[in-house]
Design a protein around this nucleic acid. Structure first.
Lengths: 118, 118
DNA sequence: GCACGTATTCGACATATGTCAAGGTCCTGC
DNA sequence: GCAGGACCTTGACATATGTCGAATACGTGC
């Protein structure tokens, strides 16, 4: 069980060096793991995928729920996690709440997995 | 709770299209999530990082345990998960078991997160 | 204001996860 | 063969996670 509390600013892109650049410290590992964990679930992966591939660029909660076949409560829960991890941003528009994928966060995550950059 | 059992061949690299290429199907999401989950833990991230940055290319269980400050049992457990996800390979050499990171698996994961390839 | 559609929050539940101690297995050197 | 070291497996435990239904909040249009 994790001993440390996840008190990490996840609103900014991942900061640290790639996994294969140098042995990762405990705190850096914690931060990256938090973001990876946000993505490491089939439902959230599909949600992210739908947001990323939407030509409008944003999708409301109900459409996402219908698409993945989960209750709106569950989808809302997953979106909250993605938001906390800095992977999506959400915005109310009238009756609906629209969600948008943060491509910079995806880029940052990919950066961490990249062997030999920076 | 996941309804489907993880009966997926994870010995081969990730097969599917990137998350932002097309809306991800349920089975593809399940497979990718399994691999991401293997990496989405601070301890396992550090283990992978150590394996990736080792100049020899492989490290034995006891050295890994000492480095991350966990019991050998726990480290062995994490390594098993990484192995099941196809992220590391292990090999007995005399008294020790040496572990090696699968760089192709890292590459495959990065591929899934990449916006506009293939 | 009120009824309705959308979204989030709140229990509650089953399952998965991370960790360790204890016991078992495999190898080496004598 | 056997003593000892390195490793793995098992059992147990606390915690985290994914899911839903019900209750609540938010916005719109009448």
């Amino acid at each position: 069980m994790p001993k440390t509390l996840p008190v990490i600013d996840v609103t900014s892109p991942v900061c640290c060096a790639p996994v294969s650049a140098e042995p990762m410290g405990a705190d850096a590992a914690l931060e990256v793991a938090l973001r990876l964990k946000a993505l490491a679930d089939p439902a959230r992966l599909r949600l992210m995928s739908m947001l990323l591939t939407s030509d409008v660029g944003e999708v409301c909660t109900c459409d996402l729920a219908a698409a993945v076949g989960l209750s709106e409560a569950t989808v809302s829960h997953h979106l909250t996690q993605l938001r906390k991890a800095g992977m999506v941003v959400s915005q109310r528009q009238g009756m609906n709440v629209f969600h948008r994928a943060r491509r910079d966060a995806m880029e940052a995550l990919r950066h961490v997995l990249t062997p030999d950059c920076c």
